[in-house]
Design a protein around this nucleic acid. Sequence first.
DNA 1: GATTCGTGGCT
DNA 2: TAGCCAAGAAT
Length: 298
Amino acid sequence: MMMRALRRRINAWYARAGRALPWREPDCGPWGVFLSEVMAQQTPLARVEPIWRDWMQRWPTPAALAAAAPGDAVRAWGRLGYPRRALRLHEAATVMVERHGGDVPTTPAELLALPGVGAYTAAAVACFAFGIPEVVVDTNVRRVLARTVEGKAFPHLTLTRAETDLATRAMPAQRHTESSARDEANVWNVAVMELGALVCVARGPRCEECPVADLCAWNVAGRPAYEGPPRRGQAWHGTDRQVRGEILRRLREEHRPVPLTALDGAGPERAQVLRCLDSLVADGLVEPLGRNRFRLPA
DNA sequence: GATTCGTGGCT
DNA sequence: TAGCCAAGAAT
């Protein structure tokens, strides 16, 4: 039926147009895939690649990262954003050493138990690193299915049960553990994500280049505008996020403890700077030395 | 379920 | 220009 045609065409498109990303190379290994998936959370892949190469060279195994200071991970994270991910990556590497023999665990349940790993990342690593045909649902998959199948410009604000069910139905049928079915499922997962990232993008979709334009319910209906609750933007100016980011930027640049007076300018109000400093310490991203000096955690 | 959490490119 | 959005997770 329609799903089968969608899969066939999208998989064929991916074979032709998919990007040659380093973590897609056959010899990348589970650790490289794991790193790439955490780094890619809410982050465009173009920004991930240089940081990923840096980390892979510096910490080629979970044990190598676990042996480093967490602050080194935070510093090497640079400006990728959401720096708690760097800390959780370090924690996850420690768990891998202590409980999994220094390897990335192979089952979705074990992956889900790692810090910084949710439903998406667990499924993605299981699929892309170990060939387990999990249902991978990210923002790209949700948008492609919302358009092609449901005829809507955008999916719901939050992932719904109906969307997970739809993504499950979109997967090729699993006839036991037949290897060809597994392969098709694994290709489908990455191919549909790639279509969402390159063609079926949120704004300015390139339907002229889309391999399933004639099958797409949204395109066939004339690409009707989004109807639904307003998609709230993320506030930035004057927020704690901005101040936390500025504090961390200063600490990354200094390789010795930074006095509080050097952090004052991180925000317009001293009270906010102090509040953000507290929250960064609580998160484990900043280590206080006495009352007036701070550094990345050793 | 609704919020919070970075950063920067693109329209 | 100002807002939208990106291979989400944790609380």
